[in-house]
């Protein structure tokens, strides 16, 4: 009996339903866990994603043939039951479950356990086989409570405001940026977003999701009370435009002193949309899976750890960008 899921050169594949999950080469039918570029690529004939991801996908990929589905709803293709479940990573992110009469699989995409007050919180889904990421799969990664991190960010922002220098923070344009907008203290000052982020916000709001107020930067470069949010790639050019400013990066990699010093960042806030060490372990236990496939991240190490803990595991090569850690541009 052929397994329900196979790992092919185009991506994770379910032969019985003839669908791929987050494929990296062009296919007919792609199920998309979330809208980040390494999971949702151009060139597929048909896309299926959580309905909150539709607008973002269209914004990022142009005019594609995409359909949406709600969490927990099931569809059936040739004897395979497919359902999407909250992954808590970014707005519209999902773990995708596929099940036939023999076995069940969950492809988690990227996920985090903590509630970010915007995306629907992660829910464990039981299955026989679980495919997990391992971006922060080392025991040094232990996140602080989001409120503690936001408190640090608020303090930094207020301090800059007193010193009359603008605050500039780099955050990924889908996910981290909205998480900041949603959780910082808006009584300190206005939140101004880089166009890439402002456009993403619009796509999210158009999906019927309520977000706290933020504005595009426009040519508003002199506002020393504002919190400027921009994607990592734009940080240098924007900081030049702002002149004297206080620059910070919000990323899980900021947990490492080496990464902070490499980027020569004055303020590194440890904030990630991925599960930390404890989170990954907890999530895997909760699936009750008999076998775990570990992908992008510290997959060798994490898989060996799981095996020693008595959870059979192996690594899987994918094109998801676990190695982006080097540039600290986590996705």
């Amino acid at each position: 009996m052929a397994p329900l899921i196979r790992f092919t050169s185009k991506g994770i594949y379910c032969p019985q339903a003839d669908v791929y999950i987050d494929p990296w080469k062009s296919v007919d039918k792609a199920l998309i866990t979330h809208a980040h570029a390494d999971h949702a690529r151009r060139g597929h004939k048909g896309y299926l994603c959580h309905h909150h991801s539709i607008n973002i996908l269209k914004y990022r990929l142009g005019n594609i043939n995409v359909q949406g589905i709600e969490y927990e709803k099931t569809i059936n293709i040739n004897g395979v039951t497919i359902s999407f479940h909250p992954a808590g990573h970014v707005v519209g992110s999902a773990q995708i479950k596929l099940q036939n009469n023999k076995e069940s699989w969950v492809i988690s995409g990227d996920y985090k356990i903590e509630n970010d007050n915007l995306s629907v919180p992660f829910q464990p889904v039981t299955c026989d086989y679980f495919i997990t990421e391992s971006t922060f799969g080392l025991p040094v990664f232990q996140w602080e409570d989001q409120r503690v991190v936001m408190d640090k960010i608020n303090k930094w922002w207020s301090h800059n405001k007193e010193q009359k220098v603008p605050s500039l923070i780099s955050a990924y344009s889908l996910g981290k940026a909205q998480r900041l907008i949603q959780n910082v203290d808006h009584s300190i000052g206005p939140v101004l977003c880089h166009p890439a982020i402002a456009n993403t916000n619009e796509a999210i709001i158009a999906s019927g999701i309520k977000m706290k107020e933020s504005h595009p930067i426009g040519d508003n470069y002199n506002n020393t009370e504002a919190l400027f949010i921009c994607p990592p790639a734009a940080i240098d050019s924007l900081s030049k435009k702002l002149g004297k400013s206080s620059v910070a990066i919000a990323s899980g990699w900021m947990a490492l002193r080496g990464a902070r010093r490499r980027r020569n960042v004055e303020h590194g806030f440890v904030l990630s949309d991925h599960a930390d060490w404890a989170g990954l372990n907890q999530a895997i236990r909760d699936t009750g899976a008999q076998k775990v496939y570990v992908t992008h991240g510290y997959s060798d190490i994490f898989s060996k750890w799981l095996n020693e803990k008595g959870i059979p595991s192996q690594t899987v090569e994918t094109a998801f960008e676990g190695e982006k850690m080097v540039e600290t541009e986590e996705v």
Binding site: L138, P139, F141
Partner: peptide, 24 residues
């Protein structure tokens, strides 16, 4: 409460012993 090999692998990636200990 982690095996020694995992500590060592982690240390190689973090690149700083004092930091690795303080975080695990």
């Amino acid at each position: 409460d982690i095996p020694q090999w995992l500590f060592e692998e982690t240390y190689h990636i973090v690149g700083d012993l004092a930091e690795t200990i303080s975080k695990v």
